[in-house]
Amino acid sequence: MEQHFVDALKNDDTKLIKVIYGDYRNEFIFFSKKYNIPEADSLDIYQEAFLAIRKHAISGKLKDVSSSFKTYLFGIGKHLIYNKLKEYSSKQSYDLLLHKVDADYEEITVDASEKLTKEQELLRHYFKQLGKSCQQMLTLSFYRGLTNDEIATLEGYENEAVVRSQKSRCLKTLKNLIKNPLK
């Protein structure tokens, strides 16, 4: 797979992401038309597929993938289109043959994102009250799994000790917000 695309998604290279998004957008709408998906839904699906491929890039799943970026993206899209068709079918009958329309792209399954528990929703509420730099610090540390050294290099901190102290301050602020919510 094109490594620079994967890197762009991992490193939030917004310029390149926008170009990639635009490059495959219209073709994907055309692709989903074969499955009788209305344009509004196909755009939602395209965005979901894009989000999913980014998650795979971040988690390292794309490291050993040999197919092209586009094939993988459309494979995820295909999976999401099937889900959409199933959703439609619960409302009205649909042609099962639609499942066999396009053999060019192999379906790639993605995990449906789990809903946050009540406690997690509450934690999200407080997380959003943190400053942008703290949110970024915690996202890089825990979701992206970067080490303190890596964060120091990426974000321009003096050294890993500064990152460590900043991170611990952010966590302390978050815990304080939970204990003493802002009115």
């Binding site: 989000l51 994102s113 946050l116 406690e119 934690l123 999200r124």
Partner: peptide
């Protein structure tokens, strides 16, 4: 839990 929440927030921003 912070990991899950920051992932959700990161996804929302990307969306």
């Amino acid at each position: 839990a912070v990991k899950t929440v920051s992932e959700t927030e990161d996804d929302a921003q990307f969306k």
